[in-house]
């Protein structure tokens, strides 16, 4: 947390509509340098849309997005430059299937940033080593598991040396046993001070990593709190209910062994939406 400094990213009154349906309805948010911000909310609340707006994959209707003091939501914004400073990793780990792992990682540095090949390659190999995949650098995506592909996708974004990383439900499409290896990589980045926005449904992970938590409902920020505060004692009722919906083990009345069931007790939970 670095609240004294100028925020790295500032979003003011962001409005995004698809046709007439509003997806984001005046979202404001500020992210300090080095912050790991977790964005939470029920499915369809606009979390992913928010990330996609930040690197220009969606066109916004009004509001401002200010990165490092520069308004990047201007009509004249050079998104190709912005995107070099904002790395993004998607849910569906979209590596380029026709390129080797190393070529996937080097495409941006060489073609977009026009960097020296040897230097970029050194960095790419260093990053691959850090995620434990250096020995797979010549493999093609189809030879990797989902978790491995997602780690490569993270390295591909990191190799552009971004100021900010966006993680859009990066573990949602993974088999459960592969979630951990990916989250560990992100946690490691957070420890090293990478500024990041994370959309996730992994509550334990969110709780462990969040410097700040942003809770979005129906395209608007319902609560924005310090991570510790949010997960221990959320200020809003909706956030509380949302968090509780992930806690079903402790709320289930245990049956006594041998005792006959006295009918089904309705369990008053809002269903955890995992999509």
């Amino acid at each position: 947390m670095n609240q004294e400094a100028l925020p790295l990213l500032q979003i003011k009154g962001l409005v995004k509509t698809y046709g007439k349906a509003p997806a984001l309805n005046g979202v404001s948010l500020s992210v300090g340098k080095g912050d790991a911000v977790v964005i939470l909310g029920p499915s369809g609340c606009g979390k992913s849309t928010l990330l996609r707006c930040i690197n220009g994959l969606e066109r916004i209707q009004s509001g401002e997005i200010i990165l490092n003091g520069e308004n990047i939501s201007n009509p004249g914004a050079r998104w190709d430059l912005v995107r070099q400073r904002v790395g993004m990793v998607f849910q569906s780990y979209d590596l380029f299937p026709h390129m080797s792992v190393l070529d996937n990682v080097l495409l941006g540095p060489l073609k977009v940033q026009k960097r020296d090949k040897a230097e970029a390659r050194r960095q790419a190999e260093g990053l691959l080593a850090r995620v434990g995949l250096l020995d797979r650098k010549k493999d093609y995506p189809r030879q990797l598991s989902g978790g491995q592909k997602q780690r490569v996708a993270i390295v591909r974004a990191l190799c552009m040396n971004p100021d900010l990383m966006l993680f859009d439900e990066v573990t949602a499409a993974l088999d459960p046993e592969m979630v951990r290896e990916v989250l560990d990589v992100i946690a490691g980045l957070a420890e090293q001070g990478m500024t990041m926005l994370i959309v996730t449904h992994e509550m334990d992970f969110a709780k462990a990593i969040a410097d700040k938590a942003v809770f979005i409902v129906d395209g608007a920020v319902e609560e924005e709190s310090d991570g510790e505060v949010f997960f221990r004692n959320p200020r809003t009722e909706r956030a509380r209910r949302f968090l509780n919906s992930f806690q079903y083990e402790s709320r289930r009345p245990r049956r006594k062994t041998g005792a006959a069931p006295s009918g089904l007790t309705p369990v008053p939970v809002t269903r955890a939406t995992m999509g």
């Binding site: 220009g56 569906s92 590596l95």
Partner: peptide, 15 residues
């Protein structure tokens, strides 16, 4: 081609 392929390219800043 999956739309995400193009978006991954865009996200890297490719023209």
């Amino acid at each position: 081609l999956p739309v995400h392929q193009r978006q991954s390219g865009m996200a890297l800043g490719l023209t």
